[in-house]
Amino acid sequence: MVENRPLLTFLSHLVLIIGVLIVAFPVYIAIIASTRASNEFLSGLIPLLPGPHLVENYSRMLSSGVSTSGAPPLGLMMTNSLIMALVIAIGKIAISLLSAFAIVYFRFPFRQLAFWAIFITLMLPVEVRILPTFEVVANLNLLNSYVGLTVPLIASATATFLFRQFFLTVPDELMEAARVDGAGPMKFFRDILLPLSRTNIAALFVILFIYGWNQYLWPLLITTDERYYTVVMGIRRLAATADTEPLWNVVMASAVLAMLPPVLVVIFMQRLFVKGLVETEK
């Protein structure tokens, strides 16, 4: 039974609206700042209304960039970030699916040991193992390359664990029926497990895409060629100019543009993302 309490409903909506305003206000300020001229911020006052330089600032960042920052045009950096995010997300999901499938449905020596060895790597983030990882990548001559940007980050213990937990909930009768019909392991994986995992894959893709898009430390370490700079690195360089005031209008324009791909991914995959997180059997 749902109780009708107008005061409680009003207070709930008021709290939600205030929360949205608090979260959205910095984004609004960034959008407003990206439409203004750079000298409008030297006084320390932040305007709250849009300015006339929107097209100029955004076209400048996408086409030519800011030469004094040492960063290439934003279009190239966003392309690099997009490649990195897609390869990391798709690679993590593919490897995790196969790893979980092998651990759950195959009987081989030290199967549980293999799972726990994967699971324990959750305690070893990139920051902990970054020096030996960098040495391996450097010895393989993968610095300043898309392979070096993506492959060291492509394994995921978290995704493997989540897919393993889901595969354990799949009834054994499905596997037995597939075996009776003459389906081999990979056909069972492709025709039964993958369709059942669709919502899990969508939810993980959103999370892993944003994870890859927001990477800063690893690209900063292995890229010295500006052709491989990512957008997060570019924004940092724009905001850290030497001997001059940062051009906050183009910094904010870059931040707004960098925010668009993750936002679009979340919007277009929102239904599957929410479904993959809230379904009880997953």
Rank of each mutant, 00 (worst) to 15 (best):
M1L: 13
V2N: 10
R5P: 00
T9L: 10
H13I: 08
G19P: 12
I22S: 06
V23L: 15
A37E: 14
S38P: 13
F41Q: 06
I46D: 01
I46T: 12
L48H: 03
P50F: 06
P50G: 05
N57A: 01
Y58H: 07
S63K: 15
S64R: 11
G65Q: 12
P73S: 08
P73G: 06
L74N: 04
L74I: 12
L76W: 03
M77P: 00
M77V: 10
A85N: 07
L86Q: 00
V87F: 04
I90Q: 02
I90C: 12
K92F: 01
K92Q: 15
K92V: 03
A94E: 05
S96V: 06
L98E: 05
I103T: 02
V104G: 01
Y105C: 07
L113H: 01
A114Y: 13
I120H: 01
L122F: 09
P125G: 07
E127C: 05
V128T: 12
L131T: 13
P132A: 10
N141L: 10
S145Y: 05
S145I: 04
Y146T: 07
G148L: 06
L153Q: 10
A159Q: 11
A159V: 12
Q165C: 03
D172V: 07
D172C: 05
E173C: 02
L174E: 02
L174Y: 15
D181N: 13
F188L: 12
I192L: 11
A203S: 15
F205M: 01
F209S: 09
I210F: 10
W213P: 08
N214Q: 13
Q215K: 11
P219S: 07
P219H: 03
E226M: 14
V232P: 04
I235G: 04
L238D: 06
A242N: 09
E245Q: 13
W248E: 02
V250T: 14
S254F: 06
V265Y: 03
Q270E: 14
R271I: 11
L272M: 09
L272A: 14
L272W: 12
V274Y: 06
L277V: 10
V278D: 00
